[in-house]
Structures are given as structure tokens and as C-alpha cells.
Design a protein around this nucleic acid. Structure first.
Lengths: 147, 147
DNA sequence: ATGAATCTTGACTTTTTTGTATAGATTACT
DNA sequence: AGTAATCTATACAAAAAAGTCAAGATTCAT
């Protein structure tokens, strides 16, 4: 399993915006230059972030992008969902489920059990990491241990 | 981040082979029918599993595929690596690393820190789950807690 | 008002991943 | 030996993801 480039670039752009100091926010050309991406590509990615409610845009000559909320309230798990989807989309295994919603009768369910176990593990971690944790100076490992 | 279809199909095929009772193992047409995949596709996936050392093949009229080792020794993390690669291929950030090999100077490293943190988390779990855990009747969650 | 800078959207192209087909090699049975 | 069943390998085709482009809409400064 891999991270998509959209996830990587999306988080990067979001970090740039989070760290920007100018009051107008950052423009597409600026982010584009910082990250070495084409303006078109940045525009496409920022669109997703905007639709996801993580950033807000201003048009016109003094336009640009800013965070839509404070970094503490921007959860990395949510951002990754918007950029790359969930690890495994389910809707399966609703019948015949054993304890804790996991069954172990068929091969299908052996695998779903694995996938959902991993998914729950990841969700648990990613739902506790905010954009602030990435911009700050503390170690991620320490943050995870404390939560 | 998502699982590739190759990872899903690969694990499925491996589970089929692990559960087979016939002494000759399973043939491509058999697995193909069980899993609803084309023989070509199964052949391609089994090739990866064979090169990875998880299964062994016998040619000829009575040929087929068997596990190359006992299920306890087939680690799911290794299988997924062969089928879909690592979550994040690194080789970066070797200089300027802080404690525990993680630095936090640039945006680049903020993200690498996130990726590697997640990667280590996953590796830790997947290295403890064997094929036997997937074929058995015990809950994966329980297995993880006990390890 | 006009022009310049910006964001917005959808269609298009390229690249990567996935899946298919074909020809060949090996083995066992008769 | 010959035939049928199997695995093996490479090249080809289709689908999905990633990236690009062009036309439009909005805002501010002059």
C-alpha cells in the first residue's frame, strides 16, 4: 500500500499555507514555486483542500489561500481522506459478523478483517494528529505516545 | 493511501493455497475459478509470490502451487512488500536528522516524519501477523493485543 | 471603466498501474 | 514418442491516476 502523490503534495501545500506569515495568504504561483510543482497542479490540489473545508480562497488581485480553521482543528486523517480516499472502502460483511463486527468464515472475511484492522489502527492515529503537530517542533512519536 | 488490487488478490491467492488440502497444491485454473480472476492475472500474481519465496511451483500435468514454508513463517508484511511495495520509499533525510532519525527543520522533513511514523507503526503490526493468523479462527485484534 | 492579478472549472494529454494474450517450457500419463 | 496438462515469460491492451491546458469569473488598483 502506498501514499498517492496527491496526498503528499496536498499535505505539503497545506503546510506551506499554514506557515505563511503574510496577511493575504499564499497564491498559487507562490506555492507552485516553493514546492516545485506546476501552477495547474497546485490549483487542482488546492481545489480539493478547499472543497474539504481546510482552506479558504480569496479571488482578485490581492487574493490567495489561507487556512479555514486554526491548525489544531485540521486533522490530518481528514485531509488524507479528501486527498486520497480511505484505505479500504467497505459496506461488506454486515451479515455474519462475529464479535466486534469482524467475521472469520470465508477468505473474503479473513482479508476484510485484516484490512479493517489496519484501517482502524491508522484511523486511530491519524485522527489524533493535527496540522499543528506537523508545524510544531515536537516529535510526532512523542505526540502519539501522549495521546 | 490505498491498498492496490495486487495486494488484495495476492493475499487472497495465498490464502487459497494455504487452505488447500490436496497434495498437489492448487493450479492456476482452480485459483482462478475460486477467486473470479482470469488465469492470466492469477499467473502474474503467483509469479510475484513465487519470486518472493512464499510459494513454490511444480510444472507438468500434476503441477500446481504450494506454500514454500509453514504459514507461521509467512509474514504478511513481507508479502505486502512484494505485492505492492513499501508505503514510502526513503533514502532521504540522512543528514540533519534529530533524535530517533527524524528531523523537523523543513516542510520536507515534517512530511517525512509523518510518513515514516506511519510506516513504522504499520511495519510493527504487519511484521507480527503471519499467514497462520489469517487462516485461523482467532480474532486479529486479539492477536495484535497479545503481541 | 479598464487592466492586471488572482482563483475556478472542465476538458484534454500523459504516465502509471492493471489486466490480457500469446508463445514457449516442463512434466506425467498413456 | 506423443499428447495433454501444467507453469513461465514477455509483450500487448485497457483502465486509472496524475498532470496540463485553456477559457472563464472575480477582485482590486488605477
Amino acid at each position: 500500500m502506498k501514499f498517492s502523490t496527491q496526498e503528499e503534495y496536498g499535505i505539503r501545500c497545506l503546510l506551506r499555507i499554514a506557515r505563511a506569515t503574510t496577511s493575504n495568504g499564499l497564491t498559487i504561483p507562490e506555492i507552485s514555486q516553493f514546492e516545485g510543482l506546476t501552477p495547474s497542479n497546485v490549483g487542482k490540489i488546492l481545489r480539493l483542500l478547499r472543497l474539504g473545508g481546510f482552506i479558504e480562497s480569496a479571488r482578485g488581485q490581492t487574493g490567495g489561500y489561507k487556512l479555514a480553521r486554526v491548525p489544531e482543528e485540521i486533522i490530518i486523517g481528514d485531509v488524507l481522506s479528501v486527498l486520497g480516499g480511505k484505505l479500504y472502502e467497505d459496506g461488506f460483511c454486515s451479515v455474519h459478523a462475529g464479535v466486534e463486527g469482524i467475521c472469520h468464515n470465508s477468505i473474503d472475511c479473513s482479508i476484510r478483517s485484516l484490512w479493517t484492522t489496519i484501517q482502524n489502527l491508522l484511523d486511530g492515529v491519524l485522527s489524533k494528529i493535527s496540522l499543528k503537530d506537523l508545524t510544531g517542533k515536537d516529535e510526532l512519536i512523542q505526540i502519539m505516545i501522549n495521546n
